[in-house]
């Protein structure tokens, strides 16, 4: 459980469904990190997981159509816990239950995109999916202590 329920009160970033919009993530996370004293390792995991989640939505959820929106909410339910809620209006897609591809094991396998779910699961501390009436809501949680980064 990410522990945020449907709480989407917090800081928000609106993106269009274009890959270059991903460049807005890093400066936004840096600002949040400064404000909420988020350690560098946790910032790394946040950047990685949001890049994965959002690029999946753009490429697969919206099939590359550039005129849709993606909204990301940031909340900090407690001092050492941070949650990003990513909402889209794409067809239902649940990365939490998606089977993981095996790790790459030869140069013939170039399905790097398929490794995104694996990275998301290894670097996030909590993932929670909800289908919404208009699309999808993915909550990605990070703890500072006992972080997934330290565990693996």
């Amino acid at each position: 459980m990410t522990g945020n329920g449907n709480d989407t009160t917090g800081e928000r970033l609106n993106l269009r469904s274009r890959m270059f919009e991903l460049t807005h993530l890093h400066p936004w996370i840096e600002r949040l990190a400064l404000r909420h004293r988020i350690p560098a390792n946790t910032q790394f995991a946040m950047n990685l997981c949001l890049e994965e989640a959002i690029s999946n939505i753009i490429r697969h959820g919206y099939s590359g159509d550039p005129d849709h929106s993606i909204v990301i909410w940031f909340t900090s339910p407690r001092e050492d816990y941070f949650v990003f809620v990513v909402e889209d209006e794409a067809p239902p897609f649940n990365p939490v239950e998606l089977p993981e591809l095996p790790p790459l094991n030869s140069l013939e396998e170039l399905a790097i995109g398929g490794q995104g779910v694996r990275l998301l699961r290894r670097f996030a501390d909590a993932l929670e999916y909800q289908a919404t009436p208009t699309g999808n809501r993915l909550s990605i949680g990070f703890t500072v202590t006992g972080s997934a980064i330290a565990k693996n």
Binding site: N41, F44, A45, L48, P102, P103, L104, N105, S106, L107, I112, Q115, R118, L119, R122, F123, I149, N152
Partner: peptide
């Protein structure tokens, strides 16, 4: 590698290495 060459990675930090290992790129 397709041209018969070799490639290695040198000196990644801990988190970058974790990304490489999680994705299996380190085996390639």
């Amino acid at each position: 590698k397709g041209r018969g060459g070799k490639i290695v990675i040198f000196g990644p930090n801990e988190l970058v290495e974790k990304v490489l290992k999680t994705s299996g790129v380190d085996t390639m």
